[in-house]
Amino acid sequence: MREFDYQRAHDVAGAVALLGTDPDTRFLGGGTNLVDLMKSGVERPARLVDIRELPLDDVESTPEGGLRIGATVTNADLAAHPEVRRRYPALAQAVLAGASGQLRNMATVGGNLLQRTRCGYFTDVTRPCNKRLPGSGCPAVQGEHHNHAILGASDHCVAVHPSDMAVALTAFDAVVHFETADGPGRLPLADFYLPVGDTPHRETALPPGALITGVTLPPAPVAARSRYRKVRERASYAFAIGSLAAALDIRDGVVRDARLAFGAVASRPWRALAAERVLVGAAAGAEAYAAAADAELAAARPLPHNGYKVDLMRNLVVAVLSELAEEAAR
């Protein structure tokens, strides 16, 4: 780890000013990802601006009936918040499925959105990686990729986004709010993460110098009956190999509304809009759920060793939607 300057910001404007346009300065939230990456040499900032003390640690109801979540709210506080648990249970479940109790106490919502991939080539600075070192190549395509992307990847990068929280936020149309020297801005989460293409090192659409200040969730009655299911290679404290955030509203045997987002299958949380289109208006049942999954997964381009993810996601969609339907019928 190289030596660096450290400053604490006390308000949003001050934080933005401290960051300026210096490409070697980073905001430091909980540090659970950035400090790790600094130790491995992936990140080598010259200056850290500590934003943990910013007054962005509240979860509040919006007048429309949604929620506004501050950027420095910890994962633990987010998952414990009664309104999150009541209105968006899948979001609470997603956060609780991530990392460990210790890390959830430290990690912040803003930092979670900006997590870097856990691809073993990205985190090893002695190996090529187009995301870390543009143009150096992607060894995962020919190498170890059993937990890499099946959707939206390119020959340049097949890494997956590691966040669980962001999968649920994506399902519920979250909007990211940020502040820059030129004033505030907002980005729907759907537009927040950039397509991989041939620029895997460019991960988000955040303008340079921007500080994430929070996330808003619009009201979503369908989310009250929602669920997050995560599959991983041990029962806890592991990144997903496939996950699903799902919400389902069935009336009179017909799907009125549905939300689906996939985790660990793409460079970003993957909103399954094609699947949702198949579901809405369809007769509820395993057949419709499978058809929805197939509609989404038709675009899958698995690598030699991750084809199982297509089956996994299909099975997850059928299983979780069936459970939600059963729950509704009770």
């Binding site: 540090g31 659970t32 400090v35 790790d36 500590d50 633990a76 210790q102 890390l103 106490n105």
Partner: peptide, 24 residues
């Protein structure tokens, strides 16, 4: 941050000390 051996309580909450810079 992958084993929990360095767990301490920060303001009463369990946290891993290995990913917490001392200055913070």
């Amino acid at each position: 941050g992958q084993c929990g051996a360095c767990t301490v309580l920060l303001d009463g909450r369990r946290s891993v000390a290995c990913l917490q810079l001392a200055v913070t």
